[in-house]
Amino acid sequence: MASRSMWRSLHYSAKRRVVSPAQYRCFSCSLRAQDQGKTDSEKMTHFGFTNVPESQKESLVGAVFSSVASSYDTMNDLMSLGIHRLWKDHFVRTLNPGSPLARRHNETEGQGWNILDIAGGTGDVAFRMLDHATNVNHDRQTRVTIADINPDMLAEGKKRSIATPYYNTGRLSFMEANAQTMPSIPDNSVDLYTVVFGIRNFTDKQAALNEAFRVLKPGGVFACMEFSKVNNDLFNAVYKRWSFSAIPLIGQVVAGDRDSYQYLVESIEKFPSQEEFRAMIHKAGFMIPGRGYEDLTGGIAAIHKGVKPLA
């Protein structure tokens, strides 16, 4: 979600006093990381436009997000002009979570959907999915597990969940996990795996896709919304101007943190195109329905889907 990462990065300033400053000055971190003796054999990955060793990216991304937490709705709305809410609503509506039909008597076990929302710390998408299941499909069994690598983001989600009707029910749970290896989740146990504006920050995206394939039930769906490539040259010029000039500036003025916003736009630029990412999903073993992706707002974001085959 445009919003989530922006949100996280934006939140940075608010918590700055709590966390030690060295942790989230991401640029200084990355510079220091490069200075520190890294072995030649170590694989490199990108962190925005800088290259860092793979072992470092996790902590660097963590540093960007760990300070971010609550007052970012304003910042997200400012950066995406409010469109991120429409994208998330559309995402949930097309997935249509929840079973509108009662199971037949011979299928007693497995009521409702088991949804895993990866990188869903603040719960934006999780609450929307539960609302949709409850209010549209009248399904009170569907449950969501919110997994995030970052305990600060999870804490923010827990705080927000108090205001929802799902607080302290079996339908909503939180889990601190790295999406690349989730040993606590058994094979073939999840109906729907969602990752919204999160996969961009993963160190090894293919490993996360393989792990998604493992935990999904046969027939289960992998759904991902992420920033993507704008397909119209003219619109792209305007969009690039906005993202590289306006967004860091808004971040500096409103949240007092330019570097995190610089990371945000650079990581968007580095993310693979629709076709490349679709090929990665296919490589993990998923079936690609139709064209495989849906562009939103001219390709600023795209929804990718994959279905795990039965056999």
């Binding site: 959907w113 039930k217 329905p289």
Partner: peptide
């Protein structure tokens, strides 16, 4: 599964 109707865009 119910969610598999996503195969049909």
């Amino acid at each position: 599964l119910d969610v598999s109707v996503q195969l049909l865009p």
